[in-house]
Computed example of a mutant assay.
Amino acid sequence: MVEAEDAVAAAEHIRAELGDGPVVALTGAGISTDSGIPDYRGPYSPPRNPMTYQQFVGDFAFRRHYWARNHVGWRHMEGTRPNDGHRALAGLEQSGVVSGLITQNVDTLHSRAGSRRVIDLHGRYDRVICLTCRRVTSRSRLAQRLTALNPDFDVEVSDAEIAPDADAVIAATAHFRVADCEWCGGVLKPDIVYFGENVPKPRVAEAYAMVDEAGALLVAGSSLTVMSGLRFVRHAAKQGKPVVILNRGETRGDDLATLKVDGGCSPVLASMASLYGT
């Protein structure tokens, strides 16, 4: 396990493998844990049973339960801030080492840290989409409507377990009132890709193109358990490009990596940024 005092040595190994770029970064929930957002499959993560797309669209009771939990969880997400890992990748992009970033996270922390070329593979927690008219609105606007509909619904974030997709684990949701689309009355859904739902094809194509343009791939904070991220590792490896994986614990792509570093994203990426002079 690479701890903070070994971060510089780890960063030197990574730099030797990646060269001077251009490098595409693929990030997962592990990069945001130091911002107070738990990950899905880290060594110390509790078992999670996230709602599927089929449950959300097929059962009003599931939707009501989800929106009640999300009404709590999104406030926690709003209060999070980028950490050293996010800032390091933004600096590496500004210096030209990182050419782009593909993130499996929905927390928007890369953009808030200053990264500019970001593909939000699984969407963003701060947007809501109508499944009928496809109009996209802000989550903050919906929060005002939900608060007005549920003035007595008051669950403190400190009393709830927060998940990486802005969900929160709470029990009492039977009386929560759900808001429909203001324009057509359709079903509203967070603009994120649920389990059981496909990433939009144009977004996937854009990510593949980003990998094609780069000379190497850096994975940071992802177990690569789901195919939506693993396919880009396989794509880069098939092209013979260096693949470096920085993650606590094993990943599904370890056998494809030219270098695997078992460690935390924040200290290692911050050391990398220093080595590259950013």
Rank of each mutant, 00 (worst) to 15 (best):
A29K: 02
Q54T: 15
S35C: 14
D212W: 07
A216K: 00
G263T: 14
G229T: 11
C265K: 02
L259I: 12
G215R: 07
E250R: 04
P43S: 05
C133E: 10
V24N: 01
A174T: 15
F62T: 13
A174H: 13
S271V: 02
D39V: 06
T225R: 14
W183I: 13
T27P: 00
Y40Q: 08
S99W: 02
A273T: 06
Y208R: 04
T33S: 14
S228V: 05
H175F: 14
S32P: 05
A273Q: 00
E213F: 03
T137H: 06
G36M: 11
Y53T: 09
G91M: 04
H76L: 04
V211E: 00
C265D: 02
D39M: 10
F60M: 12
V97F: 02
L230C: 07
G85R: 00
G123Q: 05
R135P: 09
A90S: 05
L217I: 11
R117A: 01
V23Y: 04
G21W: 01
S95R: 08
D34A: 10
T108C: 09
L146G: 14
V57M: 08
Q54L: 13
A168W: 14
A207K: 01
G277L: 09
A163L: 15
S271R: 01
R127G: 09
R15G: 03
C181Y: 10
T80I: 14
R81P: 07
G114M: 00
V118I: 02
T258H: 12
E93A: 01
A29T: 03
R248W: 09
V204G: 06
T103Y: 00
H110A: 00
A168F: 15
V169E: 15
D39Q: 07
L218C: 03
E3L: 04
R64S: 11
V23T: 10
V57C: 13
T278D: 07
H235P: 03
V136T: 12
E206L: 08
T173P: 04
L26G: 00
A257I: 14
R87A: 04
D39T: 05
T251C: 10
S274H: 09
S111M: 12
R64G: 11
V98R: 01
G249H: 07
G215A: 04
Y276Q: 02
F153D: 06
G73S: 10
E206M: 05
E213K: 11
D34F: 08
V72N: 05
R234M: 12
Q94I: 07
P151S: 11
S266M: 03
G79P: 10
S45G: 09
L142Q: 12
I37Y: 05
R41N: 05
A160E: 15
T52A: 06
I192D: 03
L146V: 15
D154G: 07
F153E: 06
F232D: 01
G221H: 12
A163D: 15
L269Y: 07
L146E: 15
H86C: 01
A10D: 03
T147P: 02
K260N: 12
G215S: 09
K189D: 15
G240L: 00
D107Y: 03
G73M: 09
P200K: 06
E156H: 15
Y125G: 15
S45V: 11
C133V: 14
I37L: 12
L259T: 12
E17G: 12
G96R: 03
D120L: 03
A61D: 14
G249R: 07
T278L: 07
Q104G: 00
E197K: 06
F176Y: 11
A166M: 03
